[in-house]
Amino acid sequence: MTVNGQPRAAEVEPRTLLVHYLRDSLGLTGTNIGCDTSSCGACTVHVDGEAVKSCTVLAAQVAGAEVTTIEGLATADGLHPMQQAFMDCHGLQCGFCTPGMVMAATSLLREHPNPTEDEVRLGLEGNLCRCTGYHNIVKAVLACAGGGA
């Protein structure tokens, strides 16, 4: 597979979950694990441009796919507009849900470029945050959408 634009190949046990492959084999520890029931979304990454929960995908299932993690979002020019919007709007506190939340939010805007507040809230239904009460996360996503990201 390709991870953040780089080809990666490895022999792993068939049961290796994508999230553990990313974290333990590739050292991409920005993708977090917050639950064991596909509920929290902390492990959200993009597979071929779409948000998926990497705790519920075998690494083997995405062989050949393009995977993007939070580490692949910012460029040499700085933060991705969504990351910047989260910072500007104080859309994060402890930061643990944040990589997954940002990946879910960028995927959401790809599918709904100009969402309403309700669409943002529903679009993030699979990502749990315990710190922010979501207010500033929603604000950040709307700001990013408004900013033409």
């Binding site: 596909s38 597979v47 998926v52 929960k53 995927s107 959401l108 679009g123 699979g126 990502n127």
Partner: peptide, 9 residues
């Protein structure tokens, strides 16, 4: 169904 990430898979 589920959430967007679930619907993608």
């Amino acid at each position: 169904i589920g959430d967007p990430a679930v619907r993608h898979r």
